[in-house]
Design a protein around this nucleic acid. Structure first.
Length: 283
DNA sequence: CATCATACCTGTTCGC
DNA sequence: TGCGAACAGGTATGAT
């Protein structure tokens, strides 16, 4: 569920809380999660953060970087002296900190601590040289991103080359980076396009409407600090709010917010829950 | 090469 | 009420 808006929200808070600090020690409770030599990231200043699609990067002064993908249930939670104000932990911080799902603990100077919780253990944290970050396999294969390299012309070209359903293509990170299930559903609803439509069948005008809709729903997600539908929490330990503002995602059985006369249906596409209005989004 | 199904995990929800 | 099955969804991988 963490998609572009969630990961960006997370990244910005990591930047805010970590920049200028040093990691003094790392406790690794799961070697599959933490890949690489933790000694490479100790006692060197944290310079900045970057994001590639759903991947976050923390750059260090010594030429190494921490690359991380939280997948579905990974959570970075910071506790330390420079939290803007005392924050109560969201109940969605699975198992507490530290807890049974705390797989990695980064101890920082000035008394800060960064915890990584991950119930389902799909997420990963890798240590790489900063110069090799863009060679990391996932980042290397990543397609152009909304707000970055993805232009309308490029978007149309991508769609024209595949007969797969438009929704599956939107979520394919090698075609375009950052969009996952929630925002794909909402962008298609906003565009009045049926999720099953073969991507190559979209008319130029439909592709334009969809392109704009993708930007629009991602902006909404960013505005609300992401969606805490499942396990997403921000590093300050609080939740995003987009889950209360979805257009169609999770609305199964409810009347459509636009036509008000049709009930939102749920089907499976590419193995994932897909919500749409059978009236507004006719095939 | 493109496409699709399944594995990876485990807490939560659902159906009987 | 209890318990197993189904579900949640991002990506890697193997099959087609």
């Amino acid at each position: 569920m963490p998609e572009l808006p969630e990961v960006e929200t997370m990244r910005l808070q990591l930047k805010k809380y970590l920049t200028g600090h040093k990691i003094t020690s790392v406790e690794v409770n799961n070697r599959k999660t933490f890949q690489g030599d933790e000694k490479k990231i100790l006692d060197t200043k944290i310079l900045d953060t970057r994001r590639f699609g759903k991947v976050s990067v923390i750059d260090l002064a010594n030429g190494y970087s921490i690359i991380t993908h939280v997948k579905l249930t990974g959570q970075f939670i910071y506790r330390g002296p420079n939290l803007v104000k005392p924050r109560e932990l969201s109940s969605k911080v699975t198992g507490g900190i530290p807890g049974p799902h705390t797989l990695v603990i980064f101890n920082l100077d000035r008394g800060g601590v960064l915890y990584y919780n991950d119930v389902r253990r799909f997420g990963w944290i890798k240590i790489e040289k900063t110069g090799e970050v863009e060679s990391e396999p996932f980042i290397k294969k990543l397609g152009p991103e909304p707000f970055k390299g993805l232009t309308l012309d490029l978007f149309r070209e991508i769609l024209s080359k595949t007969s797969r359903s438009i929704k599956v293509v939107l979520m394919d990170q090698e075609k375009m980076g950052g969009v996952g299930n929630i925002y794909a559903n909402d962008a298609l609803w906003l565009s009045k396009i049926n999720p099953k439509t073969p991507a190559k069948n979209l008319k130029n005008e439909e592709a334009r409407i969809l392109f704009d809709a993708i930007l629009k729903v991602l902006e909404e997600g960013l505005k609300y600090g992401g969606a805490s539908e499942l396990a997403f929490v921000t590093p300050d330990g609080t939740e995003g709010n987009y889950q209360n503002h979805t257009l169609v995602y999770g609305h199964e059985g409810e009347p459509c917010d636009r036509c008000h006369k049709t009930v939102i249906k749920k089907v499976f596409l590419g193995g994932r829950g897909t919500y749409f209005c059978p009236f507004c989004q006719k095939e």
